[in-house]
Write a protein that binds this DNA or RNA. Structure first.
Lengths: 352, 352
DNA sequence: GATGTTGCGGAAAGCGCTCTCCACCCTAGG
DNA sequence: CCTAGGGTGGAGAGCGCTTTCCGCAACATC
């Protein structure tokens, strides 16, 4: 019976002995190799395994087979709904393929990202999926690329989500296109005096996030197609977080006064920033949606219930995760996939 | 130089050969064992490793050392901010210990949970942390306990977050106490006619979630201490999700009419449900906070900006994750830790 | 009966590491 | 001069598996 006093896991050897067969037969019975095992023997092995509570040592299998069942996912911040939604997609899809996913966090620090990749590389994952946002002209980009190249040289696969073109498998999210459509639609609704809360980076000292940049540029183009221009003085650089949005709006109010100097629409480059911005407006006595329209980007499900309901560009984040895994597993990378954003006009931009 | 054509990872053997030393010396140089290596040799090894882009094979190390650097985390739903906050805490703390965390999702299905544990067990993680919510009288509980017992018999550690007492390391979250304090305070503020949106399970067909049950009971006790009673007809069983909250409120409105028959406070057993409930109220023409007060539980950061700001019991979720890991790593389990919730009264319950 | 075929079990050689043990060199002490 | 002992390198066993290869038996074919 089960040896309750043991303190190290049951091995295949134990099972084989218990079943009275060889290691080879036990192995073949438990993982359905190409080779057949006589039913009687397989039966005995399965029983013995069950009785002993055997569970194959994945590390040993990995060493013997030369391949693991692991996929690594690197995100900026797990608690951020943007990343956790993507993670949910990856984990869900991974499970369908009987893969285990290991996660790490860059904490939005691009130097750490290189370290994390180095650490993850040791796991010999089938693929490394990078969902952490990249910066333009990042000084660590070269180091990252080098580390990833080494990983690929060892047979690994690298998938990048939403970023600059890189010599790896790419999953593009249509930030620019979505933002453009959003900008165009809002301009058509009559908004003329627009301010933008962009992500961090002024282009000089700190480099901007690629995602933020794409959304900023796209949005401006969308507005421009209706003859609306956003002067540089109305583009605020701030953190890519809720607090960043809050502070950005505060800054706007500080600069232009509590009537915002006629600004009728504030576009934040992501939903959590937009929500922070609404709070700041409210705290300054403005009613979002009435005194100033606000729009975001992403369409985070958890934020679906904020009031007024947020106009945004809807991104299928779980699907992004699923597609990323599919891309990682595909034999041939194919052309870079593009996931589109869909404009969702809601009460936070009632129109003028 | 780096062999760019290779397709299988660089091994320690390669490094040793490149450096002109033995496998043993290479191993000792690269991981700082107890044994000394002459500086010159270590230097050569480090250089060779760098040049070849070597990264130690974690699986092989695990097999050789008989121990991994992995911790497994099992959550109900990664995209749910409750779980992702805990996950962030675990991942953050794990990193400080140079551990990698692998995540799996039960999708709130308790049968799947057993399977997931079985799969994770193969990884031989140092610990398995279970954050997935458990049900009272779960028919799969026995199977789960058995699977976990097997894992522990193999030297693994199991940590349970927020649940029934079980013969494993426990991290208790003070759901009952927090709910009681919240109930008491709200009763003191004058609320008398209360309805509760509880989690799923009617106690007969479907078993209730332990978390939900604790919060329900605690809240009732808190009210009772001020002489306020909640009749069973005002306790709605619904899904533990945003949609569950929405439907629960709809049901309340359907039953008691659009004035809610005098109900002045609705307590939802978690924040996402509360937010869903507010939306349902709004969609029915009620103004949350004015026509009906709403309270939640958890204090999810992402939901900090909903309006009216949500009264809730604040749980330090990231800390829960950190403590869970600490508990997993501790030599001696010690007495079950208890993490307290703090009442946060905000505008969604202005008082009467 | 000799000669293939299959079908299946087991021995053993790896997989990429760690770590024990032994060998060797050098210095110090007698 | 010899011996003891500390420091260091390397051979090789072993971790828990997979998988190749060999051998044996049972059966079909001529």
């Amino acid at each position: 019976m089960t040896d309750t006093a043991r303190t190290s896991p049951v091995t295949l050897h134990d099972v084989a002995r218990e079943a009275g067969v060889s290691l080879a037969t036990a192995s073949r019975s438990l993982n359905g190799s190409t080779r057949n095992v006589k039913a009687a023997n397989r039966e005995r092995v399965l029983e013995a395994a069950e009785r002993l509570g055997y569970s194959a040592n994945a590390s040993a299998q990995a060493v013997a087979r030369g391949t693991t069942t692991t996929v690594a996912l690197l995100v900026g911040d797990i608690a951020d709904p943007y990343f956790s939604s993507i993670a949910a997609g990856v984990v869900g899809a991974a499970e369908d393929h009987h893969l285990v996913v290991t996660m790490a966090e860059t904490r939005r620090d691009t130097a750490r990202e290189v370290e994390m990749v180095r650490a993850l590389r040791g796991q010999r994952p089938r693929a490394i999926i990078l969902a952490a946002s990249r910066r333009l002209g990042d000084p660590h980009a070269a180091a990252l690329a080098e580390e990833l190249a080494k990983y690929e040289a060892g047979g690994g696969r690298v998938v990048f989500i939403s970023t600059v073109d890189a010599p790896f498998r790419m999953l593009h999210v249509d930030n620019a296109g979505g933002a453009q459509a959003l900008g165009s639609e809002l301009a058509a609704m009559g908004y003329r005096e627009v301010a933008i809360l962009a992500g961090p980076g002024d282009g000089a000292e700190v480099m901007p996030l690629r995602t933020s940049e794409d959304r900023l540029t796209g949005f401006r183009e969308g507005l421009a197609s209706h003859g609306v221009d956003v002067p540089a003085s109305r583009v605020i650089s701030t953190a890519f977080t809720r607090d960043g949005g809050y502070e950005g709006m505060q800054q706007l109010i500080g600069t232009f006064g509590s009537d915002l100097g006629g600004i009728d629409l504030v576009f934040a480059v992501n939903d959590v920033m937009a929500v922070g911005a609404m709070s700041a407006a409210r705290d300054a006595g403005l009613v979002p949606g009435r005194d100033v329209a606000v729009a975001g980007f992403d369409d985070i499900p958890t934020l679906r219930d904020v009031t007024p309901r947020l106009t945004t560009a809807s991104l299928p984040l779980e699907r992004v995760g699923e597609e990323a895994l599919a891309l990682a597993l595909a034999e041939e990378p194919g052309s870079p996939a593009l996931l589109e954003a869909e404009v969702a006009i809601r009460e936070s931009t009632p129109g003028r």
